[in-house]
Nucleic acid binder design. Structure first.
Lengths: 202, 202
DNA sequence: CACACTCTAAAACGAACGTTCTAACTAGTA
DNA sequence: TACTAGTTAGAACGTTCGTTTTAGAGTGTG
């Protein structure tokens, strides 16, 4: 962290703080302090002010989360096991952070719902990107396009919600339960085709 | 609203604002203004300050959400249809509010994760209560206790997450998709027993 | 050396924050 | 009328907010 550029330190620190305290709860002076930068540096790199810092930070969090999701999805071949792996990795990361580092965008997204700020748009884009990752995995596994669309949306929603529930309860269990149930749900689409092809049950 | 007591107006207004802007994003002066009360009144009824107002507001939102959930769960006999009804009613209410009135506690819960404030505890209690409502419905429908526990947790998580996704995307679709998938998931537990009892497939 | 450019430092601005305080108004009771 | 308790009104305190401003280092090029 000492050899990273000042700009990177600001973005990374802002991402962590936004994720934990939300947009309004995070001061630009706090970002500067914890990033070991000065207020002048922050406004030098982000002359448009706080919102620009937040947008960059959310994009950073988006990519980090995408990487985690991609790794988990690629770690298992079957889509149901892959989805379960996502939930398990999220649970692990959440516990290790002391239940504070959850979804990088939820808090900021909820606070800026009323306003039509740029923050809204990057959050929406992040959600869409994550859904696309899941969607692609499901398609590669041979699911119907329409089924995959509904499923991918639900999987992201469930992971999102289970993460919040896990944070509030300070427990991995909501995420683990969500992983199990999502695996069962995804598996039910496989089984449907299995049943169709199985000669003993038609 | 004109004939409700000042205290009630404060609580109801605070609940709406907390739900839309979160805890730090909602000022105590704004609460007083929009509740048509004065700052003196607010501190008269809540001498402990902002946090006490928030706790009362969140408890109010909890009960309102519980009522909606209970009504939806009771509107259908089969558990899968009931869960789907929950999602549909949430989608309806969300659209009617212009995508701003989502889950009454998520925003406040996320902001106060680090601190061990009373707000944390009421939010956790609310989540547990909602889960219990779903759990009871599933038990009444004849599911295993262990299955019902996992399922109820996942259902609440999914509704929670789908609501956020729907808000960010300004669309009912995430909630409707979640409702469909949750219905399928719950139905798969029914079908398991159906399959077991069906003579043509053993 | 001088110059331009990037980056950092620190002080200061008005506005809004949560909170406290005192004063006044409105019943109801004697 | 006088007294009390419950409620409202509004000014004021110190602090922090996001932002602006001005000045000063650091570095490579002419």
């Amino acid at each position: 962290m000492a050899q990273t550029s000042t700009r990177d330190r600001i973005v990374i620190t802002a991402a962590r703080l936004l994720q934990r305290q939300g947009y309004v709860g995070t001061g630009i002076k706090q970002i500067a302090r914890e990033a070991q930068a000065t207020l002048g540096s922050v406004y030098h790199f982000f002359p448009e002010g706080k919102e620009a810092v937040a947008v960059a930070a959310i994009k950073h969090g988006d990519q980090e989360f995408s990487a985690l999701l991609r790794a988990a999805l690629d770690s298992e071949e079957s889509p149901s096991a892959a989805v379960n792996a996502c939930a398990r990795r999220l649970a692990e990361a959440l516990r290790e952070s002391g239940w504070v580092d959850g979804c990088p965008i939820t808090a900021a997204a909820l606070e800026t719902l009323g306003s039509d700020s740029e923050i809204q748009r990057v959050c929406a884009a992040a959600l869409r990107a994550w859904e696309q990752l899941v969607y692609d995995k499901l398609l590669r596994s041979g699911l119907d396009a329409e089924d995959a669309k509904d499923l991918a949306s639900t999987i992201i929603s469930t992971l999102e919600g289970a993460e919040v529930t896990a944070q509030v309860n300070r427990s991995e269990e909501p995420l683990r339960a969500a992983g199990r149930q999502l695996a069962r749900l995804v598996g039910s689409y496989d089984k449907a085709s299995n049943l169709r092809d199985r000669p003993s049950c038609t």
